[in-house]
Design a protein around this nucleic acid. Structure first.
Lengths: 159, 159
DNA sequence: ACAACTCCGACAAAAGATGTCCGAGTTGGA
DNA sequence: TCCAACTCGGACATCTTTTGTCGGAGTTGT
């Protein structure tokens, strides 16, 4: 079970975007994070499709959050990048082989699938309760209140 | 984020093994579950390396559980197949780019990594509380007490 | 001692993720 | 009104991971 690497870049990008009210180009975000520019842009497109960020073209274009950072959960970002499909998907083993069950007795999911789904629900709930604003606040607290100000300063100064 | 397909086969195999006190060959399990025999054997080897099952060679050989099914958690099986590495692993973005933090201020994990790790802990806790015996009992309950008996009967009869 | 059965690690094929490129559209200025 | 520069967006290679397969080594019962 491996999570796409772009999830990390997307989360950092959202935290960065929460510190700027002007649109930020993808190339600027890539420079700040030290990532391949074109590939980061690909993931930002996924965020745009999910309705998390809004893209404006043109000379002063770029990406910006569609909502306040406190209303964007980490789960939303992860789902946008990684896709909403569950990590464990049942192949319905019980309907194959010499002891195959008839399809009419398989309306409820398999007990194994239920257990795996419950675990994934717990994982999703944990991510749903954390917002982008929370992440920004925690990162700021880790650096004693200097990190977010530095990001905001760099975003406007580099223009 | 995708979980290996072999996890499902391994869990079903463990439930099946819990119903037999004699060793069961990998080919027999593959026939029962309708899976590629050689590939299932590969995953059973992983379970053997993790100390969950014990393999005996020879004419009447096969796989059997090393412990009572009530003492084997689902998490153990998942970890044995999928590997214990966390799904989200931090690339330390904060140490790259123009606003890179010095390494000595990065002893604690990044706030984003902490949030993701907490979610994975919740996922692992959910799977740790379910045992192979629980799965067998639930599958049996779903089929009104006929499934496990049928498995046990098929395992001995097909010999 | 033999023969048959088992597991086990090394070898290909397929899929997904990663990374890159150029075109379409839009905006600001002349 | 036109132009030029900048932006995003989807289509195109490259690469790692997963999936799947095979024959060999070892062990057990006859």
């Amino acid at each position: 079970m491996k999570l796409s690497n772009g999830v990390e870049w997307a989360l950092h990008s959202c935290v960065t975007l929460s510190q700027s009210r002007e649109p930020v180009p993808a190339a600027r975000l890539a420079e700040l994070h030290g990532t391949p520019p074109a590939y980061l842009a690909k993931h930002l497109q996924a965020l745009s499709r999910a309705g998390i960020v809004h893209s404006t073209a043109g000379q002063v274009g770029g990406y910006e959050l569609t909502r306040p950072a406190a209303q964007i959960s980490v789960l939303e970002v992860v789902r946008a990048i990684d896709g909403g499909e569950p990590a464990y998907r049942c192949t319905e083993i019980r309907q194959r082989g010499p002891l195959a069950l008839p399809a009419e007795r398989c309306e409820r999911p398999c007990a194994i699938a239920r257990a795996m789904a419950a675990a994934e629900d717990a994982w999703a709930d944990a991510l749903r309760q954390v917002t982008i604003a929370d992440l920004a606040a925690r990162i700021d607290a880790d650096s004693e209140g200097t990190a977010m100000a530095a990001v905001s300063r760099w975003l406007t100064a580099a223009r």
